[in-house]
């Protein structure tokens, strides 16, 4: 199996996996970083959202071979902040968003990517940017509140 060198959360990781292995499973199975969740495997639910060079991508549909390049920098929920104090993470706790909590890492990564490119999103912009992430418990109104709160703290 090919060996890949990956830049994840500002650290270099070496993995031996098949070229088509999705980054999701590299993170979960090989690097034991399980904050990124499996939900559907086809890019429909957003539970596996990570950042690729600051943009939100679905790690379940991103083959490892596509990111094995020094210019490809991955950030996962574990690396979004050192101590859990990213404004989006703090807003999530402050608004008490989660119910089951399973989708929330993906939601937080989508929200952080939104605020990277748009520091002051409107209500509609928030809803549209967050609509790729399913929350089966229905915490959407709190998600939107938390994103708006985080935007004021950026």
């Amino acid at each position: 199996m090919p060996q890949y060198s990956l830049m994840i959360n500002e650290q270099e990781h070496q993995v031996d996996v098949a070229a088509n292995t999705p980054v999701l499973w590299v993170l979960r199975d090989h690097l034991k970083m399980v904050g990124t969740k499996y939900g559907c495997g086809i890019g429909q639910c957003g539970a596996c959202t990570i950042h690729l060079n600051g943009n939100a991508v679905r790690s379940c549909s991103l083959p490892v071979s596509a990111i094995a390049n020094a210019s490809m920098k991955i950030t996962t929920i574990e690396g979004l902040s050192e101590t859990g104090d990213h404004p989006v993470q703090k807003a999530w706790v402050e608004v008490d968003v989660p119910q089951c909590g399973y989708c929330q890492a993906g939601q937080i990564m989508s929200a952080a990517a939104l605020l990277n490119r748009n520091a002051t999103p409107s209500e509609d912009e928030i809803k549209n940017a967050m609509s790729g992430n399913l929350c089966r418990c229905g915490t959407y109104t709190r998600i939107n509140k938390a994103v708006a709160l985080a935007a004021t703290k950026k």
Partner: peptide, 17 residues
């Protein structure tokens, strides 16, 4: 607030999977 709120927001291994 949810007692697991911070762990959820920071991606800690909480779930069965």
């Amino acid at each position: 607030k949810n007692v697991d709120g911070v762990k959820i927001a920071t991606g800690k291994p909480l779930f069965g999977l």
